[in-house]
Design a protein around this nucleic acid. Sequence first.
DNA 1: CTTTGTACCATTACACCACACGGTACATAT
DNA 2: ATATGTACCGTGTGGTGTAATGGTACAAAG
Lengths: 126, 126
Amino acid sequence: MEIIIDIENETPLFAQLIGQIKEAVLKGKIKPGDPLPSIRQLANDLNLNSKTVAKAYRLLERDSVIKARGYRGTFVHPDAVANSTVDLNKWVEERLNETVTAFRKSGVTDSEIRIAFANIMNKKNF
Amino acid sequence: MEIIIDIENETPLFAQLIGQIKEAVLKGKIKPGDPLPSIRQLANDLNLNSKTVAKAYRLLERDSVIKARGYRGTFVHPDAVANSTVDLNKWVEERLNETVTAFRKSGVTDSEIRIAFANIMNKKNF
DNA sequence: CTTTGTACCATTACACCACACGGTACATAT
DNA sequence: ATATGTACCGTGTGGTGTAATGGTACAAAG
């Protein structure tokens, strides 16, 4: 598995990592059950901070592309191929765009939309 | 019409203005057809910048609480009483909250939601 | 004693936005 | 002349987010 991280690229490093691992899964370069490099090992190889790699792994596990097994390491998820085709962020953007567009059509100012959004995100839901 | 602006209050000045004018309408202190002070006049009386008052008037007109008539001045809208009870921002927050809550239940990170939101708001829709 | 994922503490740099301020200008009317 | 709403240019302050860095620590297993 050849992973190339471009520091000059505007795409965040953790996002580049996620993209390349999903791509490797889709191209069959890594198959379900295969072990992945440990977080610290990969961080060392790519000259990245371990927290950056950990962030990528955490999101990949959320998407069921990989599966962490504690001290035993991290492995490619059984349904990795199917789940690598799903782009959760794209779905979020589409749904959110519908909502925002409706607001704008109702005469709501962009500034007001931002304020409302900030209020919701910072609200302590208890 | 007695308008009191509190600079110490955390509520934005233009929002205080909007609130007090809507309140005056609901309490019947000003009635449909009544003239309002000009933007410059009110700004001078309250020691506010004219742009701050203009912002409040612009939003009040969008909500059909007041009606600007160019050089003739600004007047209370015929449907001002009914429209003063409507809180557009509250409606926006409720709708937006539903959308965000759905995202969170799907495992989407708050960070990802913010990124998607920023992408939409900054997108040039042409 | 080392390695695994994970969870805290933290700081730095960068970027964006709301709010309020100031100045200038315009057409339209009295 | 004076006043109306409105539009454009701008500045500054304060708040807050992401991204990425670093350090420390834990339980579990080899």
